[in-house]
Design a protein around this nucleic acid. Sequence first.
RNA 1: UGCCCGAUGGUGUAAUGGUAGCACAACGGACUCUGACUCCGUUUGUCUAGGUUCGAGUCCUAGUCGGGCAGCCA
Length: 604
Amino acid sequence: MTAEKPEPSAPAPTDFIRDIVAAHVAEHRYPRIVTRFPPEPNGYLHIGHAKSICLNFGIARENRGQCNLRMDDTNPTKEDVEYVESIIADVQWLIAGWADHCLGFKLKGQTPEMRPVDGQPDFYLAATAAMPGGAPPSALALEPFYASDYFGQIYDYALTLIRKGQAYVCDLSPEETERYRGSPDQPGMDSPFRGRTVAQNLDLFQRMKAGEFPNGARTLRARIDMTAPNIWLRDPVIYRIRHAEHHHTGAAWCIYPMYDFAHCLSDYIEGVTHSICTLEFEVHRPLYDWILTSLDLPRPLPHQYEFARLNVGYTVMSKRKLLQLVQEKIVNGWDDPRMPTICGLRRRGVPASALRDFAYNIGVTKFDSLTDVAVLEHSIREELNQSALRRLAVLRPVKVVLTNIPAGDVIPCTAINHPANDAAGTRPLALTREVFIEADDFQENPPPKYFRLRPGGEVRLKYACIIKCDEVVKDAAGQLVELRCTADLASRTGGPNAGRKIKGTIHWVSAVQAIDAEVRLYDRLFTVPEPGAGADFKEFINPHSLETVTAKLEPPLRTARIEERYQFERLGYFTLDADSRPDHLVFNRTITLKDAWAKAPGAK
RNA sequence: UGCCCGAUGGUGUAAUGGUAGCACAACGGACUCUGACUCCGUUUGUCUAGGUUCGAGUCCUAGUCGGGCAGCCA
């Protein structure tokens, strides 16, 4: 069980984009605020997307608006349903209980309807009513929006542009197109096909659609200005020929619109008001606006706003690099708990609320920054400290024999489930003659200020009693076999000497009752703050990013379930892994507790 | 050397012409049956040079540094 914490009552975030939205709300510029989260289904979502999701859904949520989930699927050669499914699941998980009422989905199979505005033809596709929290969209015959659902309308818009003389079919090869484009400090040259008549263009474009030409033979280009200082205004390609099966539209098309042409129109069709994207699209904004204004559309136009993408220390964020980690089996799949993917973080045990808190803390600006992982770690610990139930577990067991407790005796103890939440209750623990303690909690020749167990020293077994180390038993090779100690039963919790002052308190489990579990201890995947900065990020892979141990757990952990998160006292936060089976438990360490001792000069 | 964008402690962010604040990190202390949590405290900042103004982190000009843009990718 996990104690539910209400969403932090932090004040609503502010940032330059929310300021803009607030101003628009104040002047009633739009009847309703509509944002969208438009991933291309060619990879798994990562924590950088989480920032965008929290921004877009956050704005919708704060303004009683809606945020459409839209597959930006205009390139059939790179996309796959595997990715659309994972994207839907990740988004729903991230916003569950927070913004699911703002999530815009549509009826399955629905496409834009022709709805004249003031006598002018217009295409529009509204989201259906709000989704009940967490329900799989398929169960309700709902699905996300797809840019590919608008191919028909986008094609019509292209025809309109051609008729207005603002688009033409160009026969230049890819190489020639590049050459004609010029360079940033060198103006481009007009394509020799720029002067084709409307009739020729219409004919050629329709034949492109009909499949008469091979890949790359022709393109449709916007006719803007080959000498524009902004390269994206130098007659950009807006349609290309691709004889390829599309994951959503099948074989219906062999020409596909480019991002710039499809994106602004998709926003318009869905009635998006604020189209929020990352900084690299800033130079595309004039084109976004050019397309929309060129079409004389009857409804209010969406506008694009840009913010800086997220960078986090000691990780990589590019889809290409993440894909490489997966394909080269450096990690075990997209949801490997070391991955910065949403499903990886989820599997690792990071709660969605921690990711939201993180997004809240880092803010939104146009500054290209590198966020310290400590900020993420802080959000995770803060959330888990409040919600995770406490348990005792020993990762690297050392046997302790309590010589004054007869074998077979069971001394009942009571452990608190959550120190800050009485309602979480207590649970019984059994103190027996043999227990395990953590290897780190005993040292034969300890450094100064070490207040755990040492020969002749005392330490408290949490929730049980104080023990004194009488004897260190080693084998012929000098390896530690067991510690023989005496238990001061009068110091038992609730006993007459319970208040006896002792500096160290350590965790333990009963050797006879403890259950075994595989525990996976994760560390950062890279050894340097910016692994992606150099030529080859793989040379910075941390060889110790995963360590597996066989731990001893207190028995109630046998019934732990996925998505339940526990604090193993003094160690960190842990959660059951999907690989776990009843006869072979597997736990992931989400994150360690902060450890002031580990930083102390005396600690090894 | 074309166009666009940015620059506030170690890191991230706020201050919207009027006392440079918050978070993380670091460091010190208190508390502690988790070396956790919590609490208290400390250190560290407006890229540079001019200008406007009673007053500039904020406005203007120039420079410096950083990022983005030349896919028939998004």
